[in-house]
Amino acid sequence: MIRSGYTLPVFACASAVAALHWLRHHQPVNIVSVDLIEPVETAEIPIEQVAGLSENMALAITRSDPGDNLDLTKNTPIWALVEWHQGEGETVIIKGGEGIGKQLNADGKAAIYGYAQKLLQENLSRLLAPEEKITVTIILPAGRSLAARTSNSAFGVVEGLSLLGTTGISQPLSSPEQLTAFLADLRQKASQFDSLVFCIGENGLDLARQIGINPEQLVKTANWIGPMLVEADNLGVKEILLFGYHGKLMKLAGGIFHTHHHLADGRREILSTYCSLAGLSQPDIQTIFASPTAEAALTHLRHLDATTGSGWVNQVYSAIAAAIDSRSQEYIRSHSSRDTSATTCGSVLFDRDRKIIVKSKTACMLSGKLC
């Protein structure tokens, strides 16, 4: 049985609550309660250290505990610097300090997203008197170095980690226990809808909501796309829109249906193959193959389009999207227990700025039913 832990925003919130407690009582606290909001439960978080820096400022430290999830932030310190502030403005001002990433597509705004903002605002506001106001700065001392080991930069977040997610519970996305939870969610939604949208991660879920897709039709798959497709077909789901970051979703075009990089990658091989089939020159194919990331390869194709007036991005990615659709349906048919026709699949690929690169022909048809 895998032990669940908590997400990074929970520990950031706990540190802030502990620092605020010192400001009010001038006493340290060993454990604080955090209302997770989602799910509806309270977490008891141990505090490693609390220090008063002045009469108006305090610092508290917790350490991340994601449970048995293979999370690179495990045991990393999370600091919160809390200080009183006067004047107009919000009751709780939240800032990102050292180690919190910056969003390139939002003028360098701190990568502290919706759930983390809500968690901090609600837990701290209820501890303040009506006239009191505070500024909270979240600091991840190891955030900058840890970010170099993530794909954050592929989503336009630089210089640190994100406080991202929709829940306080840390989810081990590649564990069999997590697949069981995803399948349960799929069964519940398949009982209500004939058409569903599969999203690999939080970026896809967030973007899908932004463009108007019904949240009740969104299903998170993490890396378990193959088993989730087969189960959807067994449940009689008629249509699935695969909605994901191009660096992940393109693996399906190569027949890779468990997308964790520890099991299989193949992105540069897949992208280079489709560039070759589209007629790209040998030197440019070599550049694509040597690109360190899928995003860098896409940038090169976009540069070619901008400087030569070509349409390589559309040609290459349209072919990849069509292959994702066909390979997905082949995968379903090869594992299906149904005698009737397999579930129809369409695909939408987006880039690091959460801008859609391409929709397959089937995806264009499905989008009208989902938005």
Score class of each variant (00 low, 15 high):
256 I>Q: 01
358 V>N: 09
2 I>R: 12
129 A>L: 04
267 R>V: 13
15 S>Q: 11
142 A>W: 13
347 S>P: 07
195 S>N: 07
137 T>E: 04
19 A>D: 01
93 I>M: 14
345 C>Y: 02
265 D>H: 14
275 C>Q: 05
142 A>R: 10
371 C>E: 12
252 L>I: 13
188 Q>I: 11
75 N>C: 08
234 N>D: 13
340 T>R: 15
148 A>S: 14
5 G>K: 07
232 A>M: 07
338 R>W: 00
296 A>D: 12
178 Q>E: 11
365 M>Q: 14
233 D>M: 09
185 D>G: 09
113 Y>F: 02
113 Y>D: 01
248 K>N: 02
99 G>D: 06
132 E>P: 13
45 I>P: 06
367 S>L: 05
17 V>C: 00
290 A>R: 15
208 A>Q: 06
34 V>T: 07
305 D>R: 05
29 V>S: 09
148 A>F: 03
104 L>D: 11
310 S>M: 00
151 S>V: 10
218 L>I: 10
31 I>K: 13
258 H>Q: 14
243 F>E: 00
222 A>W: 01
120 L>G: 08
300 H>F: 10
100 I>R: 06
53 L>P: 07
339 D>V: 08
348 V>D: 00
295 E>A: 10
211 I>F: 11
319 A>N: 09
265 D>F: 09
253 A>H: 01
220 K>L: 13
16 A>C: 09
210 Q>P: 11
134 I>C: 05
89 G>M: 10
53 L>V: 06
38 E>G: 05
315 Q>Y: 02
225 I>T: 04
211 I>M: 04
169 I>G: 02
65 D>S: 13
85 H>D: 00
63 R>D: 00
112 I>P: 02
38 E>C: 09
300 H>R: 10
140 L>R: 02
281 S>P: 04
131 E>D: 13
331 Y>H: 14
94 I>R: 03
116 A>R: 02
75 N>T: 07
166 T>D: 11
263 L>I: 12
199 C>T: 12
94 I>Y: 05
29 V>N: 10
198 F>T: 01
360 S>K: 11
46 P>S: 04
22 W>I: 06
368 G>E: 08
329 Q>L: 05
107 D>I: 03
121 Q>W: 04
14 A>G: 13
74 K>C: 05
151 S>H: 03
268 R>I: 03
354 R>C: 03
311 G>H: 10
297 A>G: 13
163 L>M: 11
121 Q>N: 15
222 A>S: 13
11 F>M: 08
65 D>L: 01
180 T>N: 07
265 D>T: 11
105 N>Q: 12
369 K>D: 08
73 T>H: 07
110 A>W: 01
66 P>K: 05
284 D>F: 10
